[in-house]
Design a protein around this nucleic acid. Structure first.
Lengths: 127, 127
DNA sequence: ATAGTAACTAATTAAAAATTTAGTGATGGC
DNA sequence: GCCATCACTAAATTTTTAATTAGTTACTAT
């Protein structure tokens, strides 16, 4: 998983340039990683264990889920609580920032639902 | 630029699964493409020509800018107006959807500015 | 005739992201 | 001892995305 970024690339420089210009770019880089929003929504709705999230998000793998919860914890959007049980039990919950972010994502979700351009493409796909 | 996606991959299936689950995933896939938000903000602020956007966004290339304005037009977030002049003149402007999206992105921008986790990483980077 | 302009496109290559496969530790049940 | 559980990690591979290089069109200015 952990292949290092090449800090000498123009690819890297451009991302740094954008993040410097506006922190939105950093936030978007996080929330647009695959599965991230759905994981947030799972936790928001109380589906807060590793295994149960993995089951809800049909095709996600252990590797990715572990990576994403780690990222979300790093950005202080979720927290982990460890229970001294066997087998191991860990529960995730949203932080205050996480709750705020979820609120905004839900707004965007409503917006995207109402976007004619997106809707017509959906329909085209199913046709 | 136009390398076709491999529709048989699980990578593709997972993206389709997420978009089916929630259209937010489709919208995020668009706005998180590199440079997209900054292009929207340029147009919003009246910087509405190909060349001037390219100059404002220092490191962007013709190839990428052309791809992004095409995408934004496809999703009906910007429109193009052609002027019959020489040399060729094209102006972009936000659609009503584009304006709404910009509004939400600005909200998210304020949020990300206030996120302690992001801020501390910024600081760490410059240290 | 040659060079320059704006707004692009096509093909290639480099880099990053997602996925797959195979493991870990501590414990419990058979 | 052997298999199972949960919540992970490491390494390798595949797929996608971004960047580079080299063009195009239709005209104008030198």
């Amino acid at each position: 998983m952990a292949t290092e970024r090449k800090t000498s690339s123009t690819n890297f420089r451009n991302q740094a340039y954008l993040e410097e210009k506006c922190s939105l770019n950093e936030l978007l880089d996080l929330v647009s990683k695959r599965w991230v929003c759905e994981i947030l929504f799972c936790v928001e709705e109380g589906n807060n264990r590793f295994k149960s999230i993995r089951e809800e998000l049909t095709y996600i793998s252990d590797t990715i889920l572990a990576d994403r919860v780690k990222l979300l914890e790093k950005y202080d959007l979720i927290t982990k609580q460890y229970f001294d049980e066997v087998p191991l039990r860990v529960e995730y919950s949203l932080t205050e920032s996480g709750r705020q972010l979820c609120g905004m994502l839900e707004m965007m979700c409503n917006f995207s639902d109402s976007l004619p351009a997106l809707k017509s493409m959906e329909t085209a796909k199913h046709a």
